[in-house]
Design a protein around this nucleic acid. Sequence first.
RNA 1: GGGCUCUUGGUCUAGUGGUUAUGACGCUGCCCUCACACGGCAGAGGUCCUGGGUUCAAUUCCCAGAGAGCCCACCA
Length: 796
Amino acid sequence: MEAKLEGKRWSKDFEEPIRAEWKKNKVYAFVPDAKKPVFSIDTPPPYVNAPIHIGHATVYTIMDIIARFRRMTGFNVLFPIGLDRNGLPIEIATERKFNIKLSETPREKFIEFCKKTLDESSTESLHSLYMLGHSYCSWELGKTPGSMYYTDSDDYRQMTQETFIDLWNKGLIYLDERVNNFCPSCKTTIADSEIDYKEYPTMFSEVRFKIKGTSEYATIATTRPELLCSCAILLFNPEDERYKHLEGKTAIVPIFGQEVPIKAHPYAKMDAGTGLMMMASFGDYTDIRFFRENNLEPIIAIGADGKMNEKAGPLKGLTVGDARKKVLELLREEGALGEQEKLMHRTPVCERCKTPIEFIAMPEYYLKQLDMKDEIRDVSKKISFYAPESKRILDNWIDTISMDWAISRRRYYATELPIWYCENCGEVIVPPKGKYYRPWKENPPIEKCPKCGGTKFKGDERVFDTWFDSSISPLYVLNYPHDKGFFENSFPCSLRPQGKEIVRTWLYYTVLRCYQLTGKPVFQDTWIHYHVVDEKGNKFSKSAGNAIDPMEIIDKYGAEPFRLWAVLEGDITRIDLRCSFERIEGASKFLTKLWNVSRFVSMFPQDADGYELTPSDRWILGEMDKLARYAKEHFYEYDFHEPVQMIKHFIWETFASHYIEMAKNRAYNQNGDFSEQEQKGALYTLHTVLKTILKIMAPVTPFITQKIYRDVYGGDIHKKAFPEGSEDEPELPFSKDDVISFNSAIWKAKKDNGLSLKNPVKKVVAPKNLEILEKELKLMHGIEEMEFGEELSITL
RNA sequence: GGGCUCUUGGUCUAGUGGUUAUGACGCUGCCCUCACACGGCAGAGGUCCUGGGUUCAAUUCCCAGAGAGCCCACCA
C-alpha cells in the first residue's frame, strides 16, 4: 500500500512545471469551434503599473477562475489579456523616471521615453500574472481572437480613431468651449490629477457694488477681484436675513459697470466674508459648476497665455497677479474698496512648479451623451449585474450626468484625434477609415481642401481622453477590427469584470460608446467587485507605504494559497477583502489537508468492478452530489465564495473526519470483516468523492488539483467536465448531523476519561436510526457491545 | 457640502420579526489517533452602534442621531 503522492504536503515548487507547460504548449489558446458556444471575457486591461496592485492580482485571479470554470462546462472561452498603456499616468511616470518635462520635450522624443517606461513595467506586470497561474488564451501580441493586446498599439489606436470617425459621421461629436486647468508658468493645460493644493496667503477684499435704482450698496468679499469683469451674479444664502431685501435687485459692478442680478443661493455661506459673494467665471471649481448648472454664459477674461484679455478692460495684458494689484488700486480710487483681511487660502497649484493654476476656456471636442441618458438606462437594464445591487452605481451616475463628454486632451501619449484643418479656410478634415493617423506629424490623406481647394493643412495636436480608448476594449476583444464575421457572431461580450469605483467611467463609457456604435447592450453580464484592503481596512497604496507586491506572496507561499484565499476570504462583490500574509498562510492549510486526504485515497486501488455500496457510501456520495449541484449553480453566477467554503468544510469536517474514519477499516479490510464487494464499495466511493472534489476545486486551485489528478488518475483535470451532481437523493434513516454527533460523543467520552482513541468501548446504546451503520461504527470506535434505543449511552 | 453603502464576541464576518445569534482568525487548556501536529479535541468570549416608533414580540421593519468607508464636489 503506497500513496501515489509523495511528501506530507503541497509544495509551491510543484507549481512552476505546471505553469510552464500551460504556457509552452499554449494549452488555453482560443481555437474557433462552431460546436461550442463562445464565452468571452472583456478583461479590462490593467493599467500598466509595476508591481501590479494586490487588488489587481486578486480580481484577475477570480476572472481566471471564471474562465477555467466555463471551460469545464463546455464553453469555448475567449480570455485575452490586454494592457492599457495610454494616458497620463504613463506620462507622469516617464517624467519622473527620466527627469524630463512634457512641455519642454519634443513630442517624438517624449513618446520614445514613454515607450521605454512601458516596456519595462509591462514585462514585470505580465510576469506576475503568469506566476498567478492565469489561463489567458495567449501571452503573445497578435491579431487573432485571444491574442494579447496593448491599447497603444497602432492597431488598437486605429480602431479608436475609426470609432471616432464613425461617431463624427453620425453627428455625435461637436466642438465647444471647455474650461481647462492652465498652468501659466508651464504654459500648458494640466490634468485634474496633476493639481496640488497649497495654502497661500491672500488678500480677502471687500468690494462695494451699487444697487441699481437705489442709493444702497452691497458689499461682497473676494480673493479674486481681478475677475470682477467676469462677475455674472451676486449670491447670498437663502437663510440670511441681512440680504433678503436684495433678492431680485440688480447690482452694478464697479469699474466695469456691467449689471448683475442678486439671488439667494445655498452656495453662499452666511459666515464667510460679508455673506454676500460674487460668482465670476472662473475663480475656482465651484464657479465652474455653478455656471454649468445654472446655464450662465461665462465671460472668459484670462487668455491662453495666462494674461488678462480685452474683456478685462483696463487690466488687459497684465498677468493675473499684476491685474489683482492694479484692480485693487482702481477700486480704492473709486472708493469701492472696503476692508481688507489677510488670510490663508487653499489654492489649486500646478503639481510640478507650484504656480497657482488658472481656469481657461478652450475649444474642445465633445461626444454627445446628454440626449441619450434614457436610452443608456434602457440598454443597461439588459445587462445582468453581479451582484444585482451594484447596478445602482451605474444608475446613480447616469442620473447625475449634466454635460456632454469632453473627449480631447492636450497631451502626448494617447491616441491622436484624426483631424486636420485647412490653413486657408479652416475647414475641418476628418479622414476616411483604414489607417492609424498621427496628424501632428503627418499630412492628411488628401491633396486639396474639398471646400476651398487649399493645399496647406494643419494637423490637430490633441489626443483622446484615455476612457475613449479603453471604453471599446470589448470590440477589440471580439476582434472587431480584423474579423467582422467573428465579431457579429460573438457579440455581445459575455462578461465585463469591473471595479466598483470605475463603474461611472469605464463601464458607463463602454456601454455608451458601444451602444452608439452598435445600438445594442455590449455585455451580457457584468461582475462588479469591491476592493482588497489591508488588515485594518485601509486602502493599499504606494504612497501610504502599505502596498504588497503580489510577487512577495508568490515567493513565500506560491500562487495556490493566494488563489484560494481570494475566494475563501469573502465575497468580493459585496465586501472589501482584507488581505494579510497571515490569512493567505491560513488558506494554505487547506491545501495541506486536501493533499493528505488525496494521499490517503491514492493508497487504494480503484478497481470498480463488482462493488457494493453500503449506507455510509450512499450517504457521502449523496452529500457530495448535493455539493456539486450547489457549486455548479453558484459558479455560474460568479459566486465562488460560498461553494468553496462549503467544499472546504465538506472535505475537512465531513469527508475526512467522519466518512474516511468510518470507511477505513472496510477499505483496508485486514481482518476480512467485510466482503470483497463491500471493500470495493469503499474504494469506489473514496475515489469518486476525491475525483469530484478535485474537479470542483480545479478552477480555483488549478495547480494542486492538476498535480493530484495527474499523479493519481492520469490526464488533464482542466479538460474534464465539471461535475453535475446526481439529482437522486439517497434514502437513509440518518442525517449528516446524526453521524457527526454520534462520533463526536464517543471521541469526547474517551478524551474526557483520558483514554486513547484506540481504546475499546465496552458498550454503547446508540440512536435507532444508526443501526444501519452498526458494523462500521463498531469497528471504527472499537465498540464491544452495541445496542440501539432512544438515548445515547456510552460505557467505557 | 451632495450621493451611495455600512455598523453583530478582541478582530473579521453569516444570518433572522419568535427557543440557546453563524462561522473564521486569535486566545486558553488537553492530546502523536496506522493520510495529515501546517493535525485533532474541548473551552472562554456578544447591551447584535445610540435613541424613539410599529408589534403580543425588534438584532431584524420604520424614523432620527452618532460613527466609518467609497464616489463626486471642495470653500468667495
